[in-house]
Design a binder for these strands. Sequence first.
DNA 1: CGCCGCATTGACGTTCGTCAAGTCTAGTGG
DNA 2: CCACTAGACTTGACGAACGTCAATGCGGCG
Lengths: 241, 241
Amino acid sequence: MNSTSIKVACSNCNLRELCMPLGLNESEMERVDEVVATRRKVGRGDNLFRNGDKFNALYAIRTGFFKTRISSEDGRDQVTGFQMAGEIIGLDGIVSDHHTCDAVALEDAEVCVMPFDRIEELSREITSLQRHVHKIMSREIVRENGVMLLLGSMRAEERLAAFLVNLVQRLHARGFSQSELVLRMTREEIGSFLGLKLETVSRTFSKFVEDGIVEVKQRHVRILNPDALKLIVNAQTCQPS
Amino acid sequence: MNSTSIKVACSNCNLRELCMPLGLNESEMERVDEVVATRRKVGRGDNLFRNGDKFNALYAIRTGFFKTRISSEDGRDQVTGFQMAGEIIGLDGIVSDHHTCDAVALEDAEVCVMPFDRIEELSREITSLQRHVHKIMSREIVRENGVMLLLGSMRAEERLAAFLVNLVQRLHARGFSQSELVLRMTREEIGSFLGLKLETVSRTFSKFVEDGIVEVKQRHVRILNPDALKLIVNAQTCQPS
DNA sequence: CGCCGCATTGACGTTCGTCAAGTCTAGTGG
DNA sequence: CCACTAGACTTGACGAACGTCAATGCGGCG
């Protein structure tokens, strides 16, 4: 009953189309399985890694929900992303051999530990794995570009709408509802991610409720009018009344 | 007088410690030279690539200055970065095989075209090149994290100060002055990057001038008090008077 | 010389932050 | 079973920071 005996191979994992490259043959598949050295459980509120920690591995989230966060010298901090099952965290550590952000579990979680040396070694031999690693990093760059657009040019309503649309879309890709979701983070954490204060997040939720776009009961959100939400995201700045 | 005859090999390029991995032996060095397929000149105002273009290559900037920019559906756009000699652009294109941003030359420029297939091929064989490619991508992720912090939690003065400190530091690493710089971009482009309007950028410059921190004459900036500038970047939110 | 794009400056408005009071919910312990 | 508490959330009143609009200045170039 130790962790190796109950080990689920990547090749059997139901998240494999999220984590792994497509089109591997059987022998490649077996070798990629070996990239996952161990699993690690992270309790709610605990850090998977912290700013300053030595970088050794990337982590594939098997279950649970994380936030990543950076802090400025004077103590302000910024949530840089929320990560869910099938997503990879730790890429920030490659450049300097040390992590530059904190990864905090927002609910009890389990991750696959993938030592980076092993990833590099294997991706020298398996072309599709190499390409996959490059894509994962590029995807993160493109994602952050999108967040920069959000933070640099959107107003509160647009930010929150974009946030909800993005979350629900990612959850849907994992088999959850398109219209209902449970937020794993507080208003303050949402605000930190969106560059807003928690009160503004709360007010904006209330505004959406008034407008009949969503129902909100604490962290439970039901999207009543997804089109309206998407419309807000792409809103021209000029709307009469 | 054609482009191959005047070709400068990476191994002789004075930017090699910025673009290339360290610690290559001679034969590796020669092979890495071959990653650069051609050079390409880009006139001021022209695009190196555009959103939607097929992704083929990464580009190392030899001379000149670029901005990268993404646009939302409704026409707003966001400058996602300014790039100078020795820096690599095009990483956004890897994930979807198409570029997702525009790269525009802010002055006449020349880039080294590095077909990505060739990079991948060679980095399967030269471990230090592989590691180098990973670091470049990770560095970009970390850079964008920093921009998110800036956009999400800093006020106008802090943003502009951070911008100036960052620019001058990168220029200094290239042998330019620590205290003097010529901006290659308009106030509007600075504003777009920092999530501010051009008037706010202008006003904030004027404020810095009043405070004796910088001298500004159009795009010419001289930093009189670098410590004050760095202090603003890390300022506690509470300052009396 | 006159034009044009870029930059500066001022007056005013909007959005969001701040501060404070109060509500809801889940969890604890009597 | 219910009172009690702590943390998260909501709501209102007010103010600060930044955006908007408009007038003006400046410098380079044909």
